[in-house]
Amino acid sequence: MRGFGILVLLVVMLGLAGCGNSKFRRYNGPEVTQVQVHKTERKMYLFHHDRVLKSYDIALGFAPQGHKQFEGDGKTPEGTYYISHKNPNSNYHLSLGISYPNPNDIAFAEAQGKSPGGEIFIHGGPRGRISQRDWTFGCVALTDKQMEVVYSMVRPGTPIVILP
């Protein structure tokens, strides 16, 4: 019986020790009402109405100039979208889905006989961080620690405006 008690205590201690390093943070501040990405500046801003709550340096798609039009073009979309969902099991630490492609993006690509692509996210970096400035396939990338904060602050349905 004494061995069982020690085992239970050990399990509880290990469980509590793991709580301090969780990638899931809590946020109790003002609501993020809009995300803005300024591609030329390589900056992302989280807004509460007209007030900037946070700003971050970002990495973009490996071909950052211009609006994403087709799958594999390496461009980050431009325009107004929304955060579609949270992905806690992302290959890139954590991620927030961006609602690309919208109906206009789809129509344009189909008219050219191509796919618009998809699966555009705001995400953390991969394990073994890539040293290039713009390295994604069209996503917006932050460090893992920054992504943990953004993930806690931004909710699905939040508008995201991606500017040239």
Rank of each mutant, 00 (worst) to 15 (best):
P116K: 06
E78F: 13
R127G: 10
K114V: 05
G124Y: 06
F121E: 03
F137Q: 14
T143K: 06
F137I: 09
F108E: 12
N104G: 01
G117P: 09
H93S: 12
L96M: 07
H123I: 07
P88N: 05
Y81G: 01
H85N: 11
S90R: 02
L94W: 01
T80C: 03
T136N: 10
L94C: 04
A107I: 01
T143V: 06
T136V: 06
Y92C: 02
P103V: 02
S84W: 02
R133K: 15
P77R: 08
L142S: 07
D144N: 15
I106H: 04
P88C: 04
L94E: 02
Y92L: 12
I106R: 12
A141C: 10
Q112C: 04
I98C: 01
K86M: 03
P156Y: 05
G128T: 12
P156L: 04
V149Q: 13
K114A: 15
F108P: 00
S99K: 09
K145S: 15
A111L: 07
S131N: 11
Q146G: 03
K75L: 12
N91P: 02
P156V: 03
G97P: 03
G117H: 10
N102E: 10
Y100V: 01
G118P: 03
Y81Q: 08
I83G: 08
G124H: 07
V150C: 05
R133P: 05
A111C: 00
Y100C: 05
D105K: 01
G74S: 12
A107G: 04
G138S: 14
N91K: 14
G124I: 08
Y92R: 04
D144F: 00
T80N: 10
A141S: 14
D105L: 02
Y82I: 05
S131V: 10
H93Y: 14
K114Q: 15
G124K: 09
E110P: 00
D144I: 03
D105N: 13
V150H: 05
R155Y: 10
L142P: 08
T136A: 10
G138K: 12
R155K: 14
H93K: 07
R129K: 14
E78N: 10
S99L: 09
Y92P: 04
E110M: 06
G124R: 04
L94G: 02
S90M: 02
S115T: 12
H123R: 08
R129T: 11
F108I: 07
T143G: 09
